[in-house]
Write a protein that binds this DNA or RNA. Structure first.
Lengths: 148, 148
DNA sequence: CAATCTATGTCAGAATACTGACATGAGTCA
DNA sequence: TGACTCATGTCAGTATTCTGACATAGATTG
């Protein structure tokens, strides 16, 4: 069997390793967010809104890597729960700028601390130089994938 | 507001970047696998079985980063479709060793080529040294996350 | 030897995200 | 101006994965 027919070498494939790492991160984040009754997408939405108030549904969807339909379902439940508010009418176009309520900010607070602790643990064995190299490599991969 | 209350900096967070990269990879893989009527988990299962014949349902689940319940659903449909076979009785314990059929191998062939092209594109701007550094960093992150 | 623990396969139901579709607002351009 | 393209919000239905639960096989342990 020639090398070209041998499939993807799972022990060295960066694609497989990327999936393994993101899976491990997802599991670790779910573990710390579950006690707070929060999913990863839920947390990501609040974190994004905290840092960029006024983002629309579609912008939040892109920032959390889900479809705008999925984000819309989440936003509606967050609105019902009083964590997020959106105006009844769009100030321009159709995009509705969303904002956190005080309740949303309180929910986010403990979640951010929990997620930060996971990220710290993930990076504990990497030097700042190695972290910078990883950042650069990941950015390059993202750019190449999106260019295709 | 002190730095500790500022949340996760999305522009530099390796956790966020990891999620972005895996999302971009997922989208790219789905795009090339969809014409072959194959999902990523479906492909991953066949690829794993091709390289490690006789893996059980639970082992396949761990290798593809889904629950054994999800893998079981997939395996049953693959068995119905004649791409995979499992013995009716376990040779030892309860684990049923799964194997690809010729039909499964044929399905895998074009999928492997498609996925390989995505991985090549993902890495086209990285030198072998940079790829090795990325591999080392990702392995370190996985180890640290699983240790917690 | 019996009790316990761990891993496995499987069923059932719930949660989550997705694709498809439609209407609407804004910008482009002939 | 009118046709066209594009982005957005939203509804509906589908698909996929997950959590919870149970029974069973093998290993461990007292």
């Amino acid at each position: 069997m020639s090398q070209d027919d041998a499939g993807i070498d799972l022990d060295t494939s960066l694609g497989y390793l990327l999936k393994e790492a993101s899976s491990a991160l997802r599991v670790a984040m779910e573990a710390v967010l579950r006690p707070l009754n929060m999913t990863i997408t839920h947390y990501s939405c609040l974190e994004l809104l905290s840092q960029r108030p006024g983002l629309s549904n579609s912008e939040l969807a892109r920032g959390t890597f889900v479809t705008r339909q999925s984000m819309n379902v989440l936003l509606q439940s967050l609105e019902r729960d009083g964590q997020v508010i959106r105006p009844a009418e769009a100030p321009a176009g159709k995009a509705l700028p969303a904002r956190l309520t005080d309740r949303g900010r309180r929910s986010l607070q403990s979640a951010t601390a929990a997620v930060r602790s996971v990220e710290v643990r993930m990076l504990e064995s990497l030097t700042p130089t190695e972290q910078a190299a990883a950042r650069a490599a990941l950015r390059s991969m993202v750019a190449s994938l999106k260019a295709g």
